[in-house]
Design a protein around this nucleic acid. Structure first.
Lengths: 136, 136
DNA sequence: CTGTATCCGTTCCGATACTG
DNA sequence: CAGTATCGGAACGGATACAG
C-alpha cells in the first residue's frame, strides 16, 4: 500500500486503488479498448446472440462499414467475439460473443444505467451554460 | 418495444435495450465524456476527497497541466466536480466530487474489476498474435 | 500556484470507390 | 454479402511559452 493511502479507510483504499491501480495502466488499457465510440455498442448488440455482418450494420445505428469491420477485428483479436465464415454464395459471416465478451455485459450495464440516470441532467446543464450550442 | 425485440426473452430485452437504448445515444454521451483518457482517472483520484490542482497533477500519473485543466473544466461544466477558489497569495483552488460525481465511482469500479480480471489475458493474446517485428 | 495560449504531430473516423 | 483501400477533415493531446 502506498504511503498516501495509509490513512484512508479500507473502503476508500479499495475504491481508489482498484480504479487507479498501477498508475491507471490497467484501467486505461480497457478504456482504450472500449472507448473507441463503437466497441461497447457492438458488444451490447451481440448480447442478443449470433448476428451476421449485415445485421450488425443495421442494428448499430450510424456505424460505417469501415468502423464495423475494424471494431469486429479488434474484438476478435482480443478474444471477445468469434468470427465464423461459411463458404457459401453469397458469403455469410457470423459473429458471436465469447464468454469473455459476455462477461463485459454486466459492467457495461452498470455504466449504461448510470448514463440513463444522469445524462439528461448533464445535458440540461450543458444547455444552460451554452444556450446557443445544443445537440445538432 | 421495437419489432426486432418482440421475440427476445425479457432478460435479453432488458439487457439489450438498457445498453442500446435510444440507438446508443445515451450510452455514447457518457462514453464520449469518460473515454478521453483522463476523466475517469481524475474522478477516481478525487474519490479520496478534496484535492488541490497541484495534488491532482502529482497523483494522476502522466497527465499534463493542459489536459488536467481541460478535464476539470469539463467535469465542472457537467456537475461532477466542484471548483473552489480561495483568494489567497499564492492562489489555492480545490476540487471535490459532487454527489453525481461520486455516483460514477461504482460503475467505474465494475469496469475496473473487469479490466483487472481480463486485460492480462487480452494482452497475452495480442502478444501471441504479434510475436515480433523485423523477424527476417 | 494555477492556470491560458499556441503550435503541431498523431489518431480517429466518415465518405467514397472498388472487389471476390 | 462482406469486406478492403484510400483520402481528408476533425478531434485529441503533448510540449512549450507566457500570465495573474
Amino acid at each position: 500500500m502506498c504511503p498516501r493511502h495509509r490513512e484512508l479507510s479500507p473502503v476508500d483504499y479499495e475504491h481508489t486503488c482498484r480504479i487507479r491501480g498501477d498508475g491507471g495502466r490497467t484501467l486505461r488499457t480497457i478504456l482504450d479498448q472500449i472507448c473507441n465510440k463503437w466497441t461497447l455498442l457492438v458488444v451490447a448488440t451481440l448480447d442478443q446472440g449470433t448476428l451476421r455482418f449485415g445485421d450488425l450494420h443495421q442494428q448499430v445505428p450510424g456505424i460505417s462499414q469501415r468502423m464495423l469491420t475494424l471494431t469486429l477485428r479488434n474484438l476478435e483479436r482480443d478474444g471477445l467475439v468469434t468470427r465464423t465464415v461459411y463458404a457459401e454464395v453469397p458469403p455469410r459471416v457470423e459473429y458471436a460473443l465469447t464468454p469473455v465478451g459476455k462477461s463485459l455485459i454486466p459492467p457495461a450495464l452498470a455504466l449504461a444505467a448510470w448514463a440513463i440516470e444522469h445524462v439528461p441532467g448533464i445535458e440540461a446543464r450543458r444547455a444552460d451554460q451554452h444556450p446557443s450550442r445544443g445537440t445538432p
